[in-house]
Structures are given as structure tokens and as C-alpha cells.
Design a protein around this nucleic acid. Structure first.
Lengths: 203, 203
DNA sequence: GTCTATATGCTGATAGAC
DNA sequence: GTCTATCAGCATATAGAC
């Protein structure tokens, strides 16, 4: 499929580097976000690593993209399934402080429209909110079988706002947890979801 | 009251520097968080500025502390008053992107227990949540004797969790707004507060 | 494709004149 | 108290050998 053998191999190596970087950052934590640290971790020299990525920023964005790729087997399904997936990811995050810190740091730096992470975070946020809104869609809308009562938003809140609240809590609780690892991220998000999603007795 | 004239003057100058730094960062934004940039902004050389602060980290923490000091005239009063104050601060924040970015950046860096901002953020968070829990106490609860039914937020949520959700939304919505300034921070927080606070007909 | 060596720039911090 | 001058360190990025 690859146009050139060397190109295909380069891509494969890139993926291998990203997977290894994820492992190392998850296990050993992430201290300073320097290219050299990642290079050491994946067993390459600093220029050797930058051979595969145009810049430091691109490297970090790709690491985050890879993480999402591995987390989001699929962000769909019923509200209960989706909810379980969200909470599962959050619980997993609680075992990878380095990745959470990397994510939070890049989220701030990506504020600059010029930053390579800018588009990534814009699209990621939009995708997350869309998945939430789709999964938590009020009963009777769209392709939901008649008779099967489903979730619905509370108090006249529109789906976009509910999704933004959900996203804000997911992000904000990470900051609290980074500061104090005893904070129960999943528990707080779960409580919010209970509040945000009016559940009916469809079981 | 000052033990020494020179000391008093140093303190006064420190305050003046912090106020000026706040103005400049609020107006012109904040680009890289370098001591030199702040020094230029407040009209001092880089060593001239560091004469007043032990390190870069201390400088930035003091800037944030000063901002809180100017914002929090008093975080108390009735729930309606408190709510108005919170929203007022958030609306004001929307006119000072540089300060929001500085805050968010420091919040991540303060995750490290060794970082000078660590204690600041721990205490700030605790204070914010305490103010919320105190102010959002259901009507009539006030200083109830122990043993009686404790106040409860919606859906069996305890006050601490509600406060953490509030804090998470306040912080998280800032990240969304930094990424996309069209996001209505105050509106989202306001909507959450409607959801979070069970209002009784006490007015 | 990966290395060593290096260019270049920036950072925070300090020494010492005034 | 504030400056000029300077330091040492570390960052990313690149050149060029192998």
C-alpha cells in the first residue's frame, strides 16, 4: 500500500515511537517536556527523534493524538455505554499522571492560534461534545425506537451547553487532581453526569 | 508601622509593580511568561525587577495573589450575592485573556509539590470551595446543630463534590475560552449554577 | 536512518558599578 | 535601588559523517 518501502517503514517507526513515548510518559511521568527526555525514553538521540517529527510541538501533538486513538475505541453507543466509556478513560487517566500533565500543559499552550496543537484541541473538543450530545440526546429524537425512553437534558439546557459543562468538568477536575492526587476524578464526573442526564426507567 | 523606612518602601514598590504588571498583562496579553517581558512592561530592567522577588516563580504567584486580592472584595453574603460576585469575576476575566492564560499555565505548573505556586493553588481552591459550600447552603440550614439533617445539594450530592464541580467548570471553561474566545464563560457557569443549586422560595 | 557535533537563541540569576 | 554586563545552562534545530 505504501508508495515507497522506506516511507512505510518511517511511518511504522513513527507509530512505534509514539507508542513507546506513551508508555514511558504514563509510567515514569513527564517532567519537563523536552525533546531530549522523550528521545532518551524511546532510545534515540535527540536529533534521531526529531528526524521523525518536524518540531517539538508536532511531536507532542502526535503523542496526544495517539493516546486518543488508543482510548477512543469508539465514542458511540447508548448513553449508558458512552458513559461507561468516558468514566473508564478517566479512571485510566488516574494511573497516568504524566499524560494528564502533558495534556493539560498542551491545552494551555494550544490557546495560541499559531500553535500546532490549536487545531487539534479545537477538533478534539468539538468531537467530544458531539459524542456527548449525540449519546445524551433527549428521548424520541432522531433514530431512537419508539417506546424506549431515553436520557434528556435538564431544565431547558441545550445540548451544546450541557456538552461544554461536561467537557469543562472533565478538564477542570484534572487540574484539581494534578494538584491533589487524592481527588476522585471519576467520582466527580460521574456525579455531574447524574445531574446532567435525566434518566428514565428504561434500564 | 513598618520597622524600617526602606523596608516599607520596598513593600510599597512591590505592590506598585504587581498592580502595574496586572494592568499590562490584562491589556496587552501575556506571551511567554518571561521575567524580562514583565520587567519591560513595568518599566524596570530584568535584574531590577528580580530585586523585589526571589525568583520568577515567586513573581508569578504574587501576581496571581494580587489579582485575587483585588477581585475578592469578599466572597460571602447570600447565595444570590455570592453568585453575582462569581459571575462578575468571570465576566471581568473575559476582558483579560492574558491573566486567564497566566493563571491556567501556573495552575498546571503548580502541580509539582515543589513548585512555589503549589500551596497557593491548594489554598485558593480550598477557599473557593469553602465559599461556595458556605454560600450555597440550602435556605434555612445555616448553622444547624450537628445531628440534624445536614444540608444536601441536589440528588444526594455532598457540598464538597458540588463545590469541586463548580470549581472544575470555572477552570475548565477557561480552557475552552482560551481556545475559542467566542465561548460564553459566564453563561455556561451560570447554567451550571442553576443546575447545581436547589433554590427554595425564600426570596 | 541515526549518530556526533554544533549553531543559535533564550532563560533566570548574579556581580558589581553607580 | 537600579542599572550594565555577564554567566552558565538548557532548549530546539541543523550540518554532516557514517
Amino acid at each position: 500500500m505504501a508508495r515507497r518501502g522506506s516511507y512505510a517503514k518511517g511511518v511504522a517507526k513513527r507509530e512505534e515511537i509514539l507508542e513507546r513515548a506513551l508508555e514511558v510518559i504514563a509510567q515514569d511521568g513527564y517532567r519537563a517536556a523536552s525533546v531530549k527526555e522523550i528521545a532518551d525514553a524511546v532510545g534515540l538521540s535527540q536529533p534521531g527523534l526529531l528526524h521523525y517529527f518536524a518540531s517539538k510541538e508536532e511531536l507532542f501533538v502526535e503523542i496526544l493524538r495517539k493516546r486518543d486513538e488508543m482510548d477512543q475505541s469508539s465514542l458511540d453507543g447508548s448513553i449508558d455505554e458512552l458513559r461507561a466509556k468516558f468514566l473508564s478513560v478517566i479512571e485510566h487517566n488516574a494511573s497516568t499522571p504524566g499524560l494528564v500533565e502533558l495534556f493539560s500543559r498542551q491545552a494551555v499552550e494550544g490557546a495560541d492560534p499559531q500553535h500546532p496543537a490549536h487545531d487539534f484541541f479545537l477538533q478534539r473538543g468539538a468531537g467530544l461534545r458531539a459524542a456527548f450530545a449525540e449519546g445524551a440526546r433527549p428521548a424520541g429524537e432522531e433514530s431512537r425506537p419508539v417506546g424506549e425512553e431515553a436520557s434528556e437534558f435538564v431544565a431547558g439546557m441545550d445540548a451544546e451547553t450541557a456538552a461544554r459543562i461536561f467537557q469543562a468538568v472533565a478538564d477542570g477536575v484534572q487540574l484539581q487532581w494534578l494538584l491533589d492526587p487524592t481527588v476522585d476524578m471519576a467520582g466527580i464526573v460521574d456525579t455531574l453526569l447524574n445531574l446532567l442526564i435525566t434518566r428514565s426507567d428504561h434500564d
